[in-house]
Simulated scan of single mutants.
Amino acid sequence: MLSHASQAALSLPLPTADGLAFSRALSQHISTEIAAGDGWIGFDRFMSLALYAPGMGYYSGGAHKFGPAGDFVTAPEICPAFAQTLGAQAAQILVLSAPRIIEVGAGTGEFAADLLLELERRGALPDSYAILDLSGELRARQQATLARRTPHLLPRVRWLERLPERFDGLVLANEVLDAMPAHLVLWGPTHIAERGVGVDEGRFVWRDRPASGPLLGRAKVLAGECEIAPGYLSEISLTAPAWITEWAGILGQGALLLIDYGFPRHEYYHPQRSAGTLMCHYRHRSHTDPFYLPGLQDITTHVDFTGIVEAGCQAGLELLGYTTQSSFLFNCGLTEILSRTPVGDALRYLPLANAVQKLVSPAEMGEIFKVIALGKGISQPLLGFATGDRSATL
């Protein structure tokens, strides 16, 4: 039931029989909620169920997500140099706040292992390294990774079930904001609609309803700020700003360091980006059909970094810096990290250099990925934003 064969999906790899059964079970679960909701749920709810339904969603189920055997590759999976370079910024923040780290959404645990080993190398190990992850399957992989790579550091690591009531130190989140559920909004000639999901003849279909409440208010503000024309379709995330606001109430002294792909608001809602930024990732292929194999593919939207800053500053955080991933990594000493491997050792150096190129090239991750820091009580400029700070563009 609820199969969906879009034109984009026709070129995608077929799932295994077990994978297809898993997706059908989640599709039925979503269909039941749609029926209970008078035949409609907002896209934010569909995205939430597809990614996080307990035991069934993409991130809460057992699908292999990261690396060559998964659906996409994140920066920590490309090479250890990403976490090693970030270690310089982490060490500075720990000195300026407290020797504690929380990583949100730790993936396979490779980033945590690389970062802990680098901080150990620098003599800057945190007293505690906590990981907050919604996926039990991923927590198990993280534990296995750290036990294999950093067994002597395991006593410093713990896993959280929820946000702490108070925290001083460094909060890290790499590619977390893009996976937070977002609303879809269609600005029309006379009214603003929220695009949601229904079911027709066993398939998920788009259905629009008039926007209301906080979503309508936000959409009206954006229409005025960005001169959005009728027929414009895009996303509005209410979840990500709310998450930042929640952290503002938790953080005493320290910083949030967030790495993700996105734009300042005037670029996000640019007239030429009239179909939004919604994207799905399945077996290292990108497409725009969120109804294809729910539970087996990632669903993401880009980040409106202006909205992140607004939420943080209104809740008492200070903007500490905003720049591209490329600038941030070079500011933090990427060249020195690369130089640790001798150029003459071609078998090691060439693969590393190629991986680093993916991290910093404008055609790869260097420009579209941004790094933003928000914090409290940080008394010195952060070294990751020493040059190339783009805070004025937000």
Rank of each mutant, 00 (worst) to 15 (best):
G42A: 13
P151C: 11
G109M: 15
A25W: 02
F22T: 04
P68E: 02
A50D: 13
Q92H: 02
T32N: 14
K65D: 07
T16E: 01
E110A: 15
A53G: 11
V73I: 13
V104L: 09
A25H: 02
Q89K: 10
G123A: 13
E77M: 14
F66Y: 03
G67A: 04
R121A: 13
A83V: 09
D44P: 11
L146G: 00
L20D: 11
G109K: 14
A63V: 14
P68I: 04
T74F: 00
R100E: 05
R24E: 09
D133H: 14
L116A: 04
R45K: 03
L132F: 12
Q92F: 00
F43G: 00
L49C: 05
P76L: 02
W40M: 03
A63I: 07
R149V: 14
G123D: 03
A53L: 12
S27P: 12
S135D: 09
I34V: 11
I102N: 05
M56I: 01
A36W: 12
L132A: 01
G70D: 01
A124Y: 07
F46L: 01
M56R: 04
G105T: 08
D18P: 08
T32G: 15
P54I: 10
P80R: 13
Q142G: 03
R121Q: 14
Y129A: 12
Y52N: 03
G107C: 12
L153F: 06
L132Q: 03
C79N: 02
H64E: 15
R149Q: 15
A91K: 10
L134W: 05
A91C: 07
S60G: 07
S97P: 06
S23R: 01
S23T: 01
T85W: 09
E33P: 06
F72C: 08
V104C: 06
G39P: 08
A36Q: 13
G123M: 14
R139S: 15
Y59Q: 10
A63K: 07
R149I: 13
L153N: 06
I34G: 01
S31K: 09
A90T: 06
L94E: 10
A98H: 12
A69S: 08
L86E: 02
G39Y: 09
R100N: 07
P13L: 10
T32A: 15
L115R: 00
R141V: 05
A106M: 10
L96D: 07
A88H: 03
R149N: 06
D127K: 09
T16C: 05
D133Y: 06
L96S: 10
T108K: 04
E103K: 08
A147H: 15
Q28M: 14
D18G: 00
G105I: 05
G57E: 06
L138R: 01
S27N: 11
I102E: 04
P13A: 08
G55L: 15
A98K: 12
G61F: 06
L14E: 11
G61Y: 04
G37T: 01
P54K: 01
T150E: 08
W40A: 06
I30E: 03
I102W: 05
R100I: 09
P68Y: 03
Q92M: 00
A130Q: 08
T74W: 01
V104T: 02
L153V: 10
S135W: 01
D133L: 12
V95W: 04
I78W: 04
A144Y: 15
F82G: 06
